[in-house]
């Protein structure tokens, strides 16, 4: 078996174990939280409780069982009084696991959209987040790349100093400050752009206009990150001996840069793009909240506000997986793109 496959399998296995442990901990901690009020009218509440019984989280009892604590709902069905209780957390946990593994059932929403499946809600919310992040990448990768090259080729000259200062500022200023300033300038003071995300069903150009501010705010830091990284990599390659050799054997400077320096500096940058692409998803959480974008980030906040723990669990699981997969992809892609790098090789 080639080394890289073995390594990848090892990493994937480790990732799954990590994910399992984290989700278990999250489940237990979240389920220990006090329950929110079940939303909807009595019928919706009853339907929700019955679903929870089906999922194995609640107990449907026809007698009062004070040893299980306070009942969550009391409902008369066909002349019989039903009481609903929470099961002990550990039983809920195993019910949850079996639900996921046997039917891919992550539970129902209790407050946001009562009786809708948590997975459906996540699916609805993925769209805006993914679109915004894709646009951010489309803008920031080339920009960062160009700035990085300019800075590296003019190392220690005016453009480099200027760009480095800019990068330092852009990396340091938090994204929520950036979006606030953008909203202030572009939306409130000049009315050029909307100050919130439009309602669903609005014309497409409204969405396009609303996209500008969050994408700019997200790109701010990402561009700076790419610029810094590209500059660092390129300067390192530029000072290496094989480039000197290329010059001595007669290549022009531009040939050197395009054919040798850029290509070699790509090696660590490509994994970074992959990592950033996945990792940026979680970076937009606050921005979604501030710009009221109905994405998975603002969903997270809404779940906490309305105590919708089932949906919160799925959202947290999603964020956990995003983080883990990003890490894994970065590490693996290093090895794939440049076989000289052997991650996890034994320290000599």
């Amino acid at each position: 078996m080639p080394y890289i496959v073995k390594y990848a399998l090892k990493r994937i296995a480790l990732m799954l174990v990590t994910a399992f442990v984290i989700l278990t901990l999250t489940f237990i901690l979240v389920k220990m939280l006090p329950n929110g009020v079940i939303a909807g009218n009595e019928d919706a509440q009853y339907a929700f409780c019955m679903d929870q019984v089906g999922l194995g989280y609640y107990i449907d009892s026809i007698i009062e069982r004070p040893e299980l604590g306070n009942y969550l709902l009391q409902k008369e069905v066909a002349g019989v009084l039903h009481y609903f209780y929470k099961k002990p957390i550990i039983e809920q946990y195993f019910a949850w696991l079996s639900g996921i593994f046997t039917q891919w059932n992550w539970g129902l929403s209790s407050a946001l959209q009562p009786s809708a499946s948590a997975m459906t809600i996540i699916g609805q919310r993925m769209g805006p987040t993914v679109i915004i992040n894709i646009f951010t990448m489309i803008i920031s990768v080339p920009l960062g790349f160009v700035f990085g090259i300019i800075a590296a080729l003019n190392k220690n000259k005016a453009p480099d100093h200027f760009l480095s200062t800019l990068v330092m500022v852009m990396i340091s200023v938090p994204s929520f400050v950036v979006i606030s300033v953008l909203m202030l300038i572009l939306a409130y003071n000049t009315n050029l752009l909307p100050s919130t995300w439009p309602q669903s069903g609005a014309p497409i150009e409204q969405f396009a206009r609303a996209m500008v501010i969050p994408v700019l705010a997200l790109s701010f830091g990402t561009v700076a990150g790419f610029t810094r990284y590209t500059r660092a990599e390129l300067t390192e390659v530029m000072s290496s001996e094989f480039l000197l050799l290329a010059r001595t054997k007669g290549l022009t400077k531009s040939q050197c840069i395009v054919r040798h320096a850029l290509r070699n500096s790509m090696v660590p940058i490509v994994p970074m793009i992959i990592g950033e692409f996945v990792g940026i998803l979680s970076g937009s959480m606050v921005l979604e909240q501030l710009y009221s974008i109905p994405g998975i980030g603002s969903l997270f906040v809404e779940c906490i506000r309305y105590k919708d723990w089932n949906v919160l669990l799925v959202d947290m699981a999603l964020y956990t997986m995003i983080g883990l997969v990003a890490n894994l992809l970065v590490d693996l892609s290093y090895g794939i793109i440049d076989p000289r790098i052997r991650m996890g090789a034994k320290a000599s």
């Binding site: 480790l14 990732m15 174990v17 990590t18 994910a19 442990v21 984290i22 901990l25 999250t26 901690l29 979240v30 220990m32 939280l33 979680s282 959480m285 997270f300 906490i304 947290m316 964020y319 956990t320 995003i322 983080g323 883990l324 890490n327």
Partner: peptide
């Protein structure tokens, strides 16, 4: 391995759960 697992938890998830709890 312990740090790997701990490091895998997104801080935002950890912080949310702890502050809620």
């Amino acid at each position: 391995r312990l740090t790997d697992i701990l490091g895998g938890i997104p801080w935002i998830v950890l912080m949310t759960v702890l502050t809620l709890q």
